[in-house]
């Protein structure tokens, strides 16, 4: 059986909010290392991959592999009943029909309990090859969100060009063009404001802004975001979850090609 307790319901609320624009139904795959999720959007352009390690929970118990097939809009409805600071416990039997969610207020004076019906989801599982990316950029997550939203006013796609000079996000549309260039810089007092660029070779790729803006719904989960790029492979956009236990929310986006 599964029994996992999260100190802050907020974490799951935000994860579900961040991915529900891309995916309707998906399996939460539970095993002794934690809860994982992988799903593609309907158009096969974007993929979300989440890992919540057992260490993100206290306690965490899962004896065998359990797939929880969940409709995300139904889960959103149930999670609306959880206050952000509530303690959230997820429970399921082996081969379950429902997942049980319990929300406790931190003052322990209220306990809410919900059972969410599960569904059978036959999900395609993709293998993601280990990639040595040519460029990786670590930057404030809110800055990335701002850039994507601003450039979406200009065009539906953005080119991301990374050289040793910096990283340039550029868009060209009917009304004109726009670009934002970030140079590497360290902020000692506020490290979350730093921009770090790790480059082995220059990269230039184009992506759909609609998807990138969708990914940035994860912004409130982490102060920083990491973009990893190589020519002619999908972009990886990564948010670290719940500090330092290597839990993550990753998005992959197929590049656009040709002109």
């Amino acid at each position: 059986m599964l029994e996992s307790r999260l100190e802050q319901a907020d974490l799951l609320k935000k994860v579900v909010e961040a991915i529900s624009g891309l995916v309707n139904d998906c399996n939460f795959d539970c095993n002794d290392s934690g809860i994982a999720l992988q799903a593609m959007d309907n158009s096969h352009v974007a993929l979300v991959s989440m890992m919540l390690k057992a260490e993100a929970f206290s306690p965490y118990r899962c004896d065998r592999n359990i797939a929880l097939g969940i409709n995300l809009s139904s889960l959103t409805k149930v999670l609306r009943a959880a206050q952000s600071s509530d303690i959230l416990t997820l429970k399921a039997e082996d081969a379950p029909d429902v997942v049980n969610l319990v929300f406790e207020s931190s003052e322990k004076d209220r306990i809410s309990e919900y059972d969410l019906k599960l569904m059978d989801i036959d999900q395609e599982h993709l293998g993601i090859p280990e990639t040595e990316y040519a460029a990786s950029i670590s930057m404030p997550s809110n800055e990335f969100q701002r850039i994507c939203k601003d450039l979406m006013n200009i065009s539906e796609s953005v080119s991301i060009e990374c050289t040793k000079e910096g990283v340039k996000f550029a868009a060209a549309g009917d009304i004109g063009t726009g670009s934002v260039t970030l140079k590497q810089h360290s902020n000692v007092d506020k490290p979350e404001q730093s921009v770090e660029i790790d480059l082995s070779e220059p990269v230039a790729l184009s992506f759909s802004l609609k998807y990138l803006v969708n990914f940035t719904k994860a912004t409130s989960l982490a102060s920083k975001v990491k973009l990893s790029l190589s020519n002619e492979v999908p972009l990886l956009v990564e948010y670290e979850l719940s500090g330092g236990n290597s839990s993550y929310l990753r998005f992959y986006l197929a590049p656009k090609i040709g002109d």
Binding site: A46, L126, S206, A254, K256, I257
Partner: peptide, 14 residues
């Protein structure tokens, strides 16, 4: 406008 690739061209079925 550039054409949108499919993710399946990069990732294999596991």
């Amino acid at each position: 406008t550039p054409l949108q690739n499919d993710l399946g061209e990069f990732f294999y079925m596991a």
